[in-house]
């Protein structure tokens, strides 16, 4: 067997080799004075590297750090999934208004005499729905919806999905 290379020594040092390879190398190290010397140096090096360096941190470091913290955490934490769900709700709302625009129009016309803010809002939304249709047609609306859907998928934290899915599987399998 030829001499052990630096990278092989280091793999051995990190316990990255399988049992057979380790035995083979260790046997060679035992037989070869040159490799034995190299191996001892690597082991010494590892021992030295695992010793803690002198890193000065005062005894009152934690107290000082606590004293320098802002008085309170940011109050409004907008998480991505909240943005995504809100966007989805708005999109579903606009979609519903657009889909039922004729019914809404009828409601507005029937209640034309009433000046309630809700009816005014309904009227405005209904007009927006019709306006979108007139400008671009159905395809544009569908395209916009597809874009929004892609945006939502991107916004949604995949980890939320993964965690929920994993949790569901655990519940289903009875492991939770």
């Amino acid at each position: 067997m030829s001499h052990i290379s630096d990278s092989q020594f280091q793999e051995l040092l990190d316990d990255n080799l399988n049992e057979r390879q380790s035995k083979l190398f260790l046997r060679h190290i035992w037989d070869c004075p040159q490799c034995r010397e190299e191996w001892q140096i690597y082991r010494q090096l590892k021992k030295t590297l695992m010793q803690e360096p002198v890193v000065p941190l005062s005894n009152h470091f934690t107290d000082d750090t606590m004293a320098s913290l802002p008085s309170r955490l940011p109050r409004f934490i907008i998480q991505r999934w909240i943005i995504a769900v809100s966007s989805l709700s708005i999109l579903a709302g606009i979609g519903a208004l657009y889909y039922f625009r004729d019914i809404l129009k009828r409601i507005v016309l029937t209640n034309a005499g009433f000046e309630s803010p809700l009816l005014q809002l309904t009227s405005i939304l209904s007009t927006i729905g019709n306006f979108i249709l007139r400008i671009g047609g159905d395809q544009v609306v569908l395209f916009l919806i597809a874009c929004f859907a892609l945006l939502l998928i991107g916004l949604l934290d995949k980890k939320v999905f993964q965690r929920r899915t994993k949790h569901s599987f655990q519940v289903i399998n009875g492991t939770l």
Binding site: V55, P56, L57, S58, F61, D64, T65, S68, L69, P70
Partner: peptide, 11 residues
């Protein structure tokens, strides 16, 4: 600035 930098990290 070692300690100040460590504090910045925790903040």
């Amino acid at each position: 600035d070692h300690e100040d930098l460590c504090q910045d990290v925790f903040i």
